[in-house]
Amino acid sequence: MKFGVVVFPGSNCDHDAFSAVSLNAGYSAQYLWHKDSQIPSDIDAIILPGGFSYGDYLRCGAIARFSPIMKEVVNFADRGGYVIGICNGFQILTESGLLPGVLLRNNSMKFICKDVFLKVENNTSAFTNKLIKGDILRIPVAHGEGNYFAEDDIIQELEDNNRVIFRYASPEGNVDDSTNLNGSINNIAGIINKNGNVLGMMPHPERYSDEILGCNDGINIFHSLANYLK
């Protein structure tokens, strides 16, 4: 199992994702440079890490989608390759059309960094097969624009097809307005694409992949994918 971690100018969770999948989860990993126009053939899955690609100027992820590597990431995904976009990575996925919808500014209009509780809504996906449906994961968020929005018909399609993977919930698993930290429709924290090979999520599983940091609820997302691709 080999992960490719894309480095855009302004990525700042690239090292974290790299060490989570390699040091903590025990898989191979390799950085992919934003100016590259080729993805090595031995890469099994690609991570678009968090950060502020190109300074997030103009709009989060809006410039990154035009980088040479993204053209290849889109091809990779179209061929069925597995892609995880975390935080800024999720924003880049929506900007590049690999996932529907858009991430608006948090309804508090402030950056939020804190632990949140995620309810696992679908454990049949490539990214969640090592989890239990209804499980509550403690994983941190750190974003200013994580408020998921899409047209009603898209939301309907996501819900009808079990494509909402994670929702913001209480530690007990209640999903309601009081647990919706940024205004996302239906408390959506993570979704997959139609073919199930692209995951976008605002919370940072790579941050809680090491017991020494107090929690490793995030690591099973990487293990799930490795298990699926075995």
Partner: peptide, 15 residues
């Protein structure tokens, strides 16, 4: 105040 700061990037923050 501190929830507006990213306190965990670089995954070294123990507490």
């Amino acid at each position: 105040i501190f929830e507006q700061y990213d306190s965990q990037v670089r995954t070294n923050t123990v507490t």
